[in-house]
């Protein structure tokens, strides 16, 4: 039952790995073509996504589930933007383009701006000196904050150098250790999928 998809995954995965090592222009054209196929498949998946979005929110409105007015706004936006795109195109000066830059972008920026408050509340929780590790984190954070502002140098000349050392030595060492682990884990997962050892994406749990 699973032989077909596993074989297909192996062929495509092995081909893409081989193409990474072959700089020949024809091989790279095949690579570009394969990536184009992925875009086409994504476009079809977007139809599935739209159907899912419609059915989930329509159900919420029908059953008056908590927060259903938001679902109404979502469906209105889905229909409205689709109509604008089909009727007047998707250029920068089109109604959809204007809607995007005047409504969507400011909304996204507003959400992003809230990040400062979330960082403050997370930092407040993380910096409580409950144990040795948390105290170490608190002290490091204080040194970092003082060292990164101009007044830090007036308090003690060594602060900027100390912050640089913290960033470039212990911080970078930890980041690189995690990054190497992630890299090896990613290669391992990719190989497991290509070789058919990992079949979770086919729905198999055993």
């Amino acid at each position: 039952m699973y032989l077909g998809p596993i074989l297909l995954t192996f062929v495509v995965g092995a081909t893409l790995i081989a193409l990474y090592f072959i700089p020949h222009h024809q091989a790279q054209e095949i690579n570009s073509e394969l990536l184009l196929w992925a875009t086409i498949v994504y476009a079809f998946a977007l139809i599935l996504g739209s159907v899912s979005l419609w059915s989930v929110h329509a159900q919420r409105i029908r059953q008056r589930i908590s927060g259903w007015p938001f679902s109404l706004v979502t469906l209105f936006a889905l229909l409205g933007t689709t109509f604008m795109g089909v009727a007047w195109g998707i250029g920068e000066e089109s109604p959809l383009g204007r809607f995007y830059s005047m409504v969507n972008s400011p909304l996204a920026s507003t959400m992003f701006a809230l990040l400062a408050f979330f960082i403050a509340s997370a930092a407040f929780r993380a910096f409580r000196a409950r144990n040795v590790e948390a105290t170490l984190l608190l002290v490091t954070a204080i040194v970092m904050m003082i060292g990164r502002v101009s007044v830090g140098e007036f308090i003690w000349r060594g602060f900027p150098g100390l912050t640089e050392w913290l960033l470039d030595v212990p911080n970078l060492a930890a980041k690189r250790a995690i990054a190497i682990g992630v890299g090896l884990g990613a290669v391992s997962t990719a190989l497991k999928i290509i070789l058919g050892i990992e079949r979770g994406y086919l729905g198999r749990t055993r």
Binding site: G185, K192, I197
Partner: peptide, 28 residues
Amino acid sequence: GEELFAAGAYIGREPVQLATIAAQDWAK
């Protein structure tokens, strides 16, 4: 990081899956 990739094998506990984590450790 890498614990995310080891999770599938860890939960499943299948010997072949666990072997892939050992291979990862050798590579490290």
